[in-house]
Design a protein around this nucleic acid. Sequence first.
DNA 1: CAACGTAGAGAACGGGCGTTCTCCCCGTCA
DNA 2: TGACGGGGAGAACGCCCGTTCTCTACGTTG
Lengths: 184, 184
Amino acid sequence: MVAMDGATAREQALDAAEMLFYGRGVQSVGMDEVRAASGVSLKRLYQLFPAKELLVDAYLERRDLRWRGRLAEFVARREEPRERILAVFDWLAQWFAEPDFRGCAWVNAYGELGATSERVAERVRAHKRAFREYLGALVADAGLPGALTGPLFLLAEGAMVTAGIDGAAAPAAEAREAARLLLG
Amino acid sequence: MVAMDGATAREQALDAAEMLFYGRGVQSVGMDEVRAASGVSLKRLYQLFPAKELLVDAYLERRDLRWRGRLAEFVARREEPRERILAVFDWLAQWFAEPDFRGCAWVNAYGELGATSERVAERVRAHKRAFREYLGALVADAGLPGALTGPLFLLAEGAMVTAGIDGAAAPAAEAREAARLLLG
DNA sequence: CAACGTAGAGAACGGGCGTTCTCCCCGTCA
DNA sequence: TGACGGGGAGAACGCCCGTTCTCTACGTTG
């Protein structure tokens, strides 16, 4: 294995961890498998992430930044404030249709580890809080009542969890249509 | 330990499994802990459920019957068809407020085992399918368009997952209000 | 009373996995 | 050139856990 600086090793470790953890669940993937998939030795892995829990935490954190970044980028392409809200559901539809879509990474992680890892539980809550706040900002920008944020958030959450379980993209369209009705 | 007939042992095993699996997650509870909490010996446990996966499956199946039974019983107390639909969200609010509420057992189980156990994944899908069909029947009885079923289902799912993660009952009220608006 | 079978308690087995340790290679610098 | 230090490969260590096995006690039946 060629030399690799710390930042590169960290990214490769997180790339492998994300693919494996998201695809098969955290508990069914061992650290040795992360090593094999990333090319980062166990020694280095443990220097970068002193325990598996911290690798999981870092995976969720990096994915959160990317997930919200992509969503915001997609939404920002629309001009009209109401269209922006609906664009959230268009983006979900696109995400659900990706071949390796397996539901919401944070909901899955919460189901697996929420009861045993306070660190992971808090990371999940922070992600959901940030997503809700983002929706709230879109609602405010459209001059709509703040009370709409909750329902829109619940529709999006329901769509994510349902799409994840059924492996279908249809819930995004259902949620979008319901959102359109709620926007009046 | 006094003698115990098969049916009783089965119920006690499932009682213990349900409390432990739902409260702490399936993977963090060992079979020996189920034995200790139920008073059913390991030998008997494995006669009744030849593998842990089958115990998990039976736990989800029994809980599904009870969960839907209680919901239907609560809803049936209302006369007016539209009120019945809203009663679903009242029932959720009540459920969320229970002290040991920890989110949707099926969503949690799917997050933990959906990727590794096809049996559990299918059990979860069956439960969600049954819940959606139940909502569909309520919508039909109210003479409302079937297209409302999806959004109502997504609101309920979103409320369950959000209440589970945040440990708050508020999502039920938000979902109820959104449902009221959708019913027109 | 004696032989038998069932069931419980808990040890044992096998495998997996998080984490650490050992050993060796190789690049660096005096 | 030779000592040194960081890093990789992978063995080793402990522990946990699903599953099976052994041993013992006791109730039943002839």
